[in-house]
Structure formats: structure tokens, C-alpha cells
Nucleic acid binder design. Structure first.
Lengths: 134, 134
DNA sequence: CCCCTTAATGAAAGTCGTTGTCATTTCCAT
DNA sequence: ATGGAAATGACAACGACTTTCATTAAGGGG
């Protein structure tokens, strides 16, 4: 799985991959580092940062920024382009698609002569579980 | 203008306000600080940070995050809710609206039981001027 | 117009997420 | 097995931003 990306199969990468496969919520590099330590599979913080960066580049992980600017990662179910509806409290996320919006974005950009267009779109709210727990 | 927010009218706030009124592009606190220094109206970096934070809270400035996570500010033409089409190279920005998208976001969130929903949406590209200059 | 309280300023130090360095370890092709 | 390249990890460094705190100055009351 990692080898298909020209990467070596190390214990650490396996541990990170196993973890993000289990955790459904968006988690920061530091949180992942702590979770690994807690389960007795310690991986250096630097390595966690490098690993999630690599996996994100390869499209294996989704990255978004929390309100405070911290980057949080999550295993994405689909390789296709999508966005997220994320819980502000627990990080629980739902993948959402909006083809009509993608087209709108393209058109708006083209109308103003902008090229090489990309967009960021994330929805933040409080999930049903966290709402109920209040 | 600043006094209507319960703030004192200081030389520094006037200088920052005058600057953001002239500059149409999104600029970081550090860039604003440097621009002020260059025009001989030096304002402490700390004060620039505090001022843009205050103005942003008051809705007088728009804030977005660059790809590297740095916050950049701009005077917004309309007080109404809007998004931006921003040039990656020079920060030039166009205000855009997408009422259909706002409704889509609301509906998607409601469908999944999420409450207190907010969203971030920015379009990034290369503006006509920067495209031509390449 | 002059105090005098209180907000505002700014230099420097601190915080925090993240990245660079580099010696050591580990993978894996030969 | 083994040599060489890639990966690891402790630590230092970095950069945006915030806090601290002593000093300055705004602006209302007398």
C-alpha cells in the first residue's frame, strides 16, 4: 500500500496508517502522535508530521485547517473530489459533494479572467452527538 | 469611525485604516506593518496585529487564510456576506456571492443533523495581470 | 485648559504548530 | 549477508502570532 508510492514499508508508517484507518474524525499530527503513544506504538512526532504530509500529498489523507489554523487529517473514503461537514467539537466528519458548486466556482473564476483555479470549502457545525451531549 | 466602536482615535489606528482603504489586495499584518514603515508612518507590529484583529471582529476587514496558513486582511466593499476570488501571486481579490451555494450548505448541514453551521469558501487562482506578466 | 483615569502602544519575551538538521537506524535490492 | 539509500527521531530552529509590562497619550471631568 505504501510501497505503491515508491516508499519503504516501515513499522512507523504501518502504525500511522492503521491508526487513521480506525479513527473516523479529523485529527492533528500531535493528536495522532499522542494516540500512537497511548497504544504503545510510539512514533516520533517528526515522523508523524512527515508521514501525514506524504499521505496527504498522495491523496490518501484529507487535510483541512481548524479555525485556529492547525492542520487536521482524516482518511478519505473516496478518492474523488469532495468537501466536508465537520463537527467543531469532536471532529466527526461527513463527506459531501456539490457538483453544482464546482461548476459555479469554475464559471465565476473564468468570468473574471482568473486561471489555475482551486477552491477551499468546508462546512463547520456541531454534530448531533455533540448537540445531544450538551 | 473607530470611535463608534468604543475605541479611542489614535494616530496608529488612523494610519492602519488609511492604508487598508488604499490597498485593494489581501495583505498580512506583517506586510501592512512594512508598508506603513515604508511610508514613514511606522506602527508597532504588535499594534498592527491588534488593530486588524479588532477591525476584523467589527466586520470592517475581511480575513482569509493563505495556503501557508498566514492570515491576510482586506477592506470589504460590502458588509453583506460574501466570498472571494483571490490571486495567489498578488493578493488581488474579487468579491463574489453565491446565494444558491449558501442554501446548499444550509441544506446539507441540516440533512446530517448538524447545527450552528458556518462555512469557509474561497477561490484561489491567478489574476489576469499576473497571468500576463509571466 | 489641565489633570487623571484608563485605554493604547510597542519592544521584548514567550507560545505553539511545524520544519530543518544530522547522526543513527532500518529497509531491501543485489 | 551487505552496501547504499531512505527513514527515523531527538533537538534546534523557524515564523506567525500573543502576552507582558512599562511607558505614552487620549479625552472626559473639574
Amino acid at each position: 500500500m505504501v510501497t505503491s508510492l515508491g516508499l519503504r514499508a516501515t513499522k512507523q508508517r504501518a502504525a500511522v496508517l492503521a491508526l487513521v484507518d480506525e479513527v473516523a474524525d479529523f485529527r492533528s499530527a500531535q493528536e495522532l502522535h499522542e494516540l500512537l503513544r497511548a497504544r504503545g506504538e510510539s512514533v516520533g512526532l517528526t515522523t508523524v508530521y512527515r508521514t501525514v504530509a506524504t499521505l496527504a500529498e498522495a491523496g490518501e489523507l484529507d487535510v483541512i485547517r481548524r479555525a485556529d489554523g492547525e492542520s487536521v487529517y482524516r482518511r478519505c473514503g473516496s478518492g474523488a473530489h469532495h468537501h466536508h461537514l465537520v463537527c467543531r467539537d469532536c471532529g466527526a466528519a461527513v463527506e459531501v459533494e456539490g457538483p453544482a458548486m464546482e461548476r459555479w466556482a469554475e464559471r465565476v473564476a473564468a468570468d473574471h479572467g482568473y486561471s489555475q483555479v482551486a477552491h477551499t470549502l468546508e462546512l463547520f457545525g456541531v454534530c448531533p452527538v455533540c448537540s445531544a451531549a450538551k
